[in-house]
Design a protein around this nucleic acid. Structure first.
Lengths: 107, 107
DNA sequence: TCGTAATATTGCAATATTACGATAATAAAA
DNA sequence: TTTTATTATCGTAATATTGCAATATTACGA
C-alpha cells in the first residue's frame, strides 16, 4: 500500500491533483513567486534567495518544469528560468473551473 | 532530512502550499467534487462512489476537514458532510491572488 | 588545455503520505 | 440488552517526498 490509485479517478480529477501538487510545497511556491516577480530571468539566485541547497532547488525546479510551467534557456553557463504564462493561465482556469462548480452547502 | 523547512518561508507562502496540499490528492479532489455536486449532505456514499476503503476515505475527510473546508454534523448515526463555502471562497481568492501577480515572462 | 562557475544527477537518510484491516465508539433499531 | 449501521482511530506496510553531499556535466575564460 501507499500507492495513490490514480486509475480509479477521471482524467480531470487527476489533472487537478497533479496541478495542485506543484504548488503543494512552499519551496516551489517561493520559486514561482520569485521567478514571476523578477519578471525576468534568474538562475541560482534562488539558492541564495530561498536558502536551500543547490541540489534541492534544482530538484524542485525540475518538478515545476515537468508540469510545463517553466521556460528555461541557457545563456552561457547560466540558465534563465521564466514562467510559461500560457500554461500558468491554463492552471488557473482549471482550478477555477473546479472552484466555480461548487454548489451551496446544507449544514 | 526529509522534513519540509516551513520556517524559512513567509506565512503567505506556507498558506498557499497548505491549501494546495488539500487538492494534491485525487481522492480529496473527488470527495470535494462529489460533496459539492450533491449540494447536500452525504456520508459514506463516498466509499461506494470512490472505491477506497472506509478507513481511507475517513482519513482523507479529516485532512480536508483540518483545512476548514468542511462542515460536518451528525444526524443519528450518519454524518452529514458539506462544503464550508466561505472557506472555499477564501481558498479561491488566495490562489487567484497568487496567480494574478504573475508578471510577464522573458524567454 | 586547464581551471572555474553554474546547473543537473545520483545515492541515500529522514520523514511524510497513502491505504487498509482491525477495532473502538456511537446511536438507532430489534 | 443485543444487534446493526455508521464513522473514527490505531497500527502497520508500502511507497513517495524532501533535502543534502558528492559527483557529473556543461560552457566559458585564461
Amino acid at each position: 500500500m501507499g500507492v495513490t490509485k490514480r486509475f480509479i479517478y477521471s482524467d480531470h480529477i487527476n489533472d487537478i491533483a497533479n496541478i495542485a501538487k506543484v504548488f503543494a510545497h512552499p519551496a516551489r511556491v517561493a520559486i514561482l513567486k520569485y521567478i514571476s516577480e523578477q519578471e525576468g530571468c534568474i538562475c541560482n539566485d534562488l539558492v541564495d534567495e530561498i536558502g536551500l541547497s543547490q541540489a534541492t532547488i534544482s530538484q524542485h525546479l525540475s518538478v515545476i518544469g515537468d508540469s510545463g510551467l517553466l521556460k528555461g534557456r541557457f545563456e552561457g553557463k547560466k540558465k534563465c528560468y521564466c514562467l510559461n504564462l500560457e500554461r500558468f493561465e491554463e492552471f488557473q482556469i482549471l482550478l477555477n473551473s473546479f472552484f466555480n462548480k461548487a454548489a451551496s452547502s446544507c449544514c
